[in-house]
Amino acid sequence: MTKSISALLSCTFLLATPAFADMSEACLADLSGERVTFVVPNAPGGGYDTYARALAPEFEAATGSTVRVVNNSGGGGLVARSLVLNSSSDDVFLLIENYLDLIINIDTGVDSSDGVPHFQMERFRPLGLVNFGPDAWLGVPGTDIFDPSITTMVSSQGGIDGSLLAFVAPAIALGIEPEVIAGYDGTSEMASAVLRGETDLTTMSLTSALKKASGGDLQILMTISDGPVAGHEDIPYLAGEGSVSWARTEGLDPAERDRLRGFAVMAATIGGEVRGFLAGAHLSEARLGCLSEAMDVAIASPVFAETAMAQGRPVNGVSAADTVALVERATAAFLTYGDEYNSLLEAVQ
């Protein structure tokens, strides 16, 4: 069985820690005095912005470069990606992004049928991760998502296809009839809809869900993972031994059971968020190597971890080399479930 990204990363992190090291003389000479821009494809104040701003001083200290953080959410984040892919070698732009959004694009490629270009992962060079984690379902305390008499309402930002891995696939695995109410403006509005009773639950990253649930008005119902999440072992999880879907499918016809569990594993494997930095692959190998080195040093800085954590943003860093390997494995995992993913996508569209 394919291991989930979370599990892979957990192993990777342990192995990767010693890979962080000081920068080489050659790379110090290469980056010292250069101007580097961290491009955040979202508004200030959110998770990506927090990581970028907390990392910037550490990156500066490691390289002697000057780092500025800019927020550019234009074109739904496409402008930020374009800025990075068009940056010159003497004015480096680095993007902080959810890698999985890019990995999913491998199957669609540059698709102009809807007028929006997609950017594939191979156009970027992974430089290291700052955080990864599963998605979670959020509802009011006491929500019974398995009540067969109701259609479960889900508040969502985008259309139903945008909720494919976070909600639709897990819902199928659990035998829940879904009804997505799409078009809410961000995670706060999605959570408000649950509080108002318009919807039964909503989905978002576990990090965001923990923040929303901190006041006690909302509760995390389940993580979309294939095992308990470290530090949150009391929260039910979707796939794997002891999971919600395993319990729900127990006793079914083996073929049907495997089919449903397959959806759970797919959601836990290729869903979630994997936040890290990327450079444009068009930069020279030497420059990319130095940027990877610099990012290794900056991400490993305890000051970065403390600063981000203080703002409710946990850091579980992964070195550049291990991130490259991770991306290859995640890509393979996506291709493993590509057919199911595409059939699901076609079904909901």
């Binding site: 234009g74 074109g75 496409l78 007028g115 929006v116 270009p117």
Partner: peptide, 8 residues
């Protein structure tokens, strides 16, 4: 008009 600059 096919421009992602106008997407938002």
């Amino acid at each position: 008009f096919g421009s992602y600059e106008l997407f938002d």
